[in-house]
């Protein structure tokens, strides 16, 4: 059974650490935080060609995590595969011992590093959840029976600061109806907005992992120049803290802020766990966890 599921169900406030798969096959950097963090986090998550930029496959990296005795969270994007490929990768994940799956639509191809690639989106995220549910129930998306059913712990994304909110809420509920058992949000910096989001959610037994992120210098520069284009907001006082720091210290400052946010989220019981994005660096992960008192 999924350790992540167990931890969420037992209200253990699990931490999922996001790794950064390489563009290439050099694994050292990606795996450097694993050995050390294995005992401190519940699972490691591997994005699937994040931001439509080519990376080592999430499926392969998740299997390597398994072999390192770590719990993986596979990301599966609708952008790069049709229903046949999605289903076959899901079955493949199951036999490799990978049961935690985060289903995402996927950033559009033109935003990434292969802008001329053919976008697929044969299924959307709601339909992909239904497909995975179907596999668990023993049939494929064409309704044909499987020989051996997989078991998954299915996650999806919800955008707390979506504006307008109602269409996002409808989509959230569709994802729940389609089988999502937990949700991950984009980075949370504005706790006020996050509280409002929690209040506007109808009572569901659904688990929410809030993302805590250490912004890179690129994003900080974007915000500074007023070119912010993210689906989460960055309160001016946080931006102030980040820009006041010297260039190389932006990440450390970011880790300090992340630790603080993590602590508040936990203390106020605003989330069921956290999803940590710390540039894939062991030192930064550690700083955040320590700052958050975990």
């Amino acid at each position: 059974m999924s350790r992540l599921k167990k931890a969420l169900e037992a209200d253990k406030f699990p931490v999922v650490a996001e790794l950064q798969p390489p563009k290439g096959i050099a694994l050292d950097n990606m795996f450097s935080p694993v050995g050390f963090l294995k005992k401190r986090v519940t699972a490691f998550s591997v994005p699937d060609n994040e931001h439509a930029r080519l990376r080592l496959s999430s499926l392969a990296a998740c299997r390597l995590l398994k072999e390192a005795d770590a719990e993986p969270l596979l990301h599966l994007t609708c952008r790069d595969r049709n229903r046949l490929a999605l289903e076959s990768d899901l079955l493949g994940a199951a036999v490799l011992g990978i049961n935690n799956v985060l289903v995402v639509s996927g950033d559009y191809v033109t935003l990434g590093d292969h802008p001329q690639a053919k976008p697929v989106y044969d299924a959307d995220s709601v339909q992909l959840l239904q497909i995975a549910q179907g596999l668990m129930a023993g049939h494929d998306s064409a309704g044909l029976p499987l020989n051996g059913n997989p078991d998954f712990f299915l996650g999806a994304v919800v955008i707390p600061e979506a504006d307008p909110w109602v269409p996002q809420l409808i989509k959230f509920e569709k994802k729940v109806a389609a089988g999502a058992q937990f949700f991950i949000t984009p980075a949370v910096f504005d706790l006020e907005k996050f509280r409002a989001f929690r209040q506007s959610l109808p009572p569901h037994p659904i688990k929410i992992l809030a993302s805590i992120e250490i912004l890179g210098t690129e994003e900080v520069a974007q915000a500074k120049e007023g070119k912010w284009r993210q689906v989460y907001s960055l309160p001016p006082e946080i931006l102030q803290e980040l820009t006041a720091a010297e260039a190389e210290k932006v990440l450390f400052k970011g880790a300090e802020i992340a630790g603080r946010l993590l602590k508040q989220l936990k203390e106020e019981n605003l989330a069921d766990g956290v999803y940590l994005k710390a540039q894939g660096r062991a030192d930064l992960f550690t700083m955040v966890l320590e700052g958050g008192g975990l």
């Binding site: 639509s105 950033d107 959307d124 995220s125 979506a162 307008p164 269409p167 996002q168 284009r229």
Partner: peptide, 28 residues
């Protein structure tokens, strides 16, 4: 642009499309 059938993706910002801020999000 993604041809989604079940509501907006996570990239829409203020009713604009993630693919091109000049264009409105169809699902909004």
């Amino acid at each position: 642009p993604k041809g989604l059938l079940n509501g907006p993706c996570g990239g829409t910002i203020n009713g604009r499309c993630e693919v091109d801020p000049e264009r409105e999000c169809a699902w909004t």
